[in-house]
Amino acid sequence: MTAYRAAPPATLRIVPLDALTLIYHRASGITHIVDAPVPEILEALGEEALTVDGLLARLAERFDLADADPMALAVRLDELVTAGLVERR
C-alpha cells in the first residue's frame, strides 16, 4: 500500500484567513493558497506515514465526515504530492 507523509510541521507556516488558508512551505519557498480539507489532511497526517484508508479513518475520528470517499481523498493527496506538501512513500 502506498503511504503518504506530510511535510514536517516545522517546515510549514499555516495562516488561516477568512475563506482560505495560506501555507508557506519553508523547504520550497512556495506559498500555497488552499481550502478545506487540505489543512485538515496535513494535520491528520502529522509526522506519520499513512495509507489512504488509514488517513480516512483518522479524519473520520476527528471530523464529522458525511461522505467518506477514499477515491476523493486519494485525488486530493495526489494534488498535494504534486505540490510537494505530501510525499509518497
Binding site: 519553508r26 523547504a27 520550497s28 519557498g29 512556495i30 510537494g84 510525499e87 509518497r88
Partner: peptide, 16 residues
C-alpha cells in the same frame, strides 16, 4: 539564501 532554498527544492522534487 532564497536561491539556495529553491535550488535544493528542485533537487528534492527531481529526486522524488
Amino acid at each position: 539564501e532564497q536561491g539556495r532554498v529553491a535550488a535544493l527544492w528542485e533537487a528534492e522534487m527531481a529526486r522524488r
